[in-house]
Design a binder for these strands. Structure first.
Lengths: 213, 213
DNA sequence: TGTACATCAGTGAACGCGCGTTCACTGATGTAC
DNA sequence: TGTACATCAGTGAACGCGCGTTCACTGATGTAC
């Protein structure tokens, strides 16, 4: 675990250690039972230490969400970089990265997109969230530039994002268990996941049409 | 507000009053600050009363989620009944009802699809959730029977549901603000909402295809 | 190289608070006779 | 119609607990001279 070296007064990197501890607390106990004291306990420091770095629990959670967005951005960028030059292939890769991130970072994913009512959140959270959104937006813009040059990117982005986000959300909340094959989440990369990306691709189609029967 | 008649010892319908109070508490303070005592306070009864009906906070929230699912089922069925006989039109109507429910019952929607880790939840919650899912499933089955008789309903359902659910989720978490026109949520019924249903319709298409550029 | 001092990170005891839970109770309702 | 009794819904005082916050402190680090 991430605990403080026993023989040192100063931790050295307590902020990072607390974030790691906080992520574990979030995953095990959920937002409802997320407490600063438990985070401090896991990091092996006094219970007053977290306030030094994050102020209160809301500030701590905001920083955790920012960590999540940074990780999501990295995951999407890595997939995109490995997808070759074709814009649509890159968009698909990003979608896969998005879903994979949600599955592997369930607790973080759940708090990242929660509107906190205050509207703004922390500056760092806004930066990290904006960067992740930028990856999506840029990818969609490139696809449209290549295939539908006259089309505005934001509406198509909203639809494609909705499809991928909804799939990821339902997946980690175990709502799709009845719809998945016996392979479960393992099948995603080839099976339902592929169909999902096809659906996302249809977000590029502007005019409403009813498929032939 | 829903408060107990001052001159009576027995409330008469405390369970319903508590559920209404609990919904308000959930909407105003969020799951993290949801407490039985605050619910009791709003219903105007002693703080020990809620335990009599719901056991603990988790049981209370489960009943609230069940109320949400019942309300969602009703909303979807009403829309479907007003949509005429064509299965695809009914599916679209259900999608609209789903999104409208999320917008109008934000707090409930947020807790309804949270997997609680225990797997089962309360019997009433399972019943209510199953009924809502049944509406979706039956609607999709009718569409496929009419237009794609050889196709299994569950995969298409997972995709269509993902699209609608993701759209509803991002919408109420204010993540789509940048993508919506100046009309905001008001435009949904005609504008982006229509495109959303078109996208959902594409969930019926089985084979992966790349749209012509 | 050494000394003095400011700054900062983390401590730990103390506090007040709101919570869930318990439990003996009280008031109302329904039923048997 | 009246009486006795069981059942049930809700009360309210009491309790222990874990929490966030405060605050004087201590130990370490960095900088000026």
């Amino acid at each position: 675990m991430t605990s403080k070296p026993a023989d040192r007064y100063h931790h050295g990197d307590l902020r990072e250690a607390l974030l790691a501890a906080g992520e574990a607390v979030l995953a095990e106990r959920g937002v409802e039972d997320f407490t600063l004291r438990e985070c401090a306990r896991r990091a092996g420091v006094s219970h007053a230490a977290p306030a030094h770095h994050f102020g209160d629990a809301a500030g701590f959670l905001a920083e955790l969400a920012a960590v999540g967005f940074d990780r999501l951005t990295t995951a999407m960028e890595e997939r995109r970089a490995g997808a070759g030059p074709e814009p649509l292939a890159q968009l698909h890769a990003i979608g896969r990265g998005y879903i994979a991130f949600a599955v592997r970072n369930r607790a973080l994913f759940q708090i990242m997109f929660r509107h906190d009512g205050t509207g703004v959140g922390s500056a760092n959270l806004q930066r990290a969230g904006g960067a992740a959104f930028g990856v999506l937006q840029a990818a969609m813009a490139r696809v449209l530039a290549a295939h539908r040059p006259a089309q505005a990117p934001l509406p198509s982005l909203a639809l494609a994002w909705s499809a991928v986000h909804g799939f990821a959300t339902l997946l980690i909340e175990r709502q799709l268990d009845a719809c998945l094959g016996q392979g479960g989440i393992q099948d995603l990369e080839t099976d339902l996941g592929g169909a999902m990306l096809t659906l996302m691709t249809h977000a590029l189609a502007a005019p409403p049409t009813i498929p032939a029967g």
